[in-house]
Simulated scan of single mutants.
Amino acid sequence: MNQPFRVLTSESTSEPEPNQLSRPVVHAKQLNVIYPAADQPVHALSDIDLLIRQGEFVSLIGPSGCGKTTLLRVIADLEPITSGDVLVNDMTPSEARQARAYGYVFQAATLLMWRTVLENVMLPLTIQRKPTQEAHRIAKEQLAKVGLSGFEDKYPWQLSGGMQQRVSIARALGIEPKILMMDEPFGALDEITRNNLNQQLQDLWREQQRTVVFVTHSISEAVYLSTKIVVMSPRPGRIVKIIDSPLPRERTADLRDSEAFIQLAQQVRDALSEGHHEH
Rank of each mutant, 00 (worst) to 15 (best):
Y35A: 09
A37K: 14
A38W: 03
Q40I: 06
Q40H: 14
Q40Y: 06
P41L: 01
D47Q: 09
D47F: 01
D47W: 02
D47H: 07
D47I: 02
I48M: 02
I48E: 04
L50A: 05
R53T: 13
Q54D: 12
Q54C: 13
G55C: 03
G55V: 05
F57T: 15
I61C: 02
I61R: 03
I61E: 02
G62W: 00
P63S: 10
S64T: 10
G65S: 11
G67T: 13
G67W: 02
T69V: 02
T70R: 00
R73V: 04
R73Y: 02
L78C: 01
G84A: 05
D85M: 08
D85W: 04
M91T: 13
P93T: 03
A99K: 15
A99D: 11
R100G: 10
Y102S: 12
Y102A: 13
Y102D: 10
G103P: 07
G103A: 10
G103Y: 04
G103N: 08
Y104R: 14
F106L: 07
T110L: 05
T110H: 12
L111Q: 15
W114F: 04
R115C: 05
R115Y: 06
T116M: 06
V117P: 09
L118E: 14
E119V: 10
V121Y: 04
V121N: 01
M122V: 15
M122G: 15
L123C: 13
I127M: 15
I127S: 08
R129G: 08
R129Q: 14
P131V: 07
T132D: 10
A135E: 05
R137D: 13
I138N: 15
I138H: 11
A139P: 00
K140Y: 03
E141R: 11
Q142D: 09
Q142E: 07
A144Y: 08
G147C: 10
G150L: 07
G150A: 05
E152A: 01
K154V: 11
P156D: 07
P156Q: 08
P156H: 12
Q158C: 01
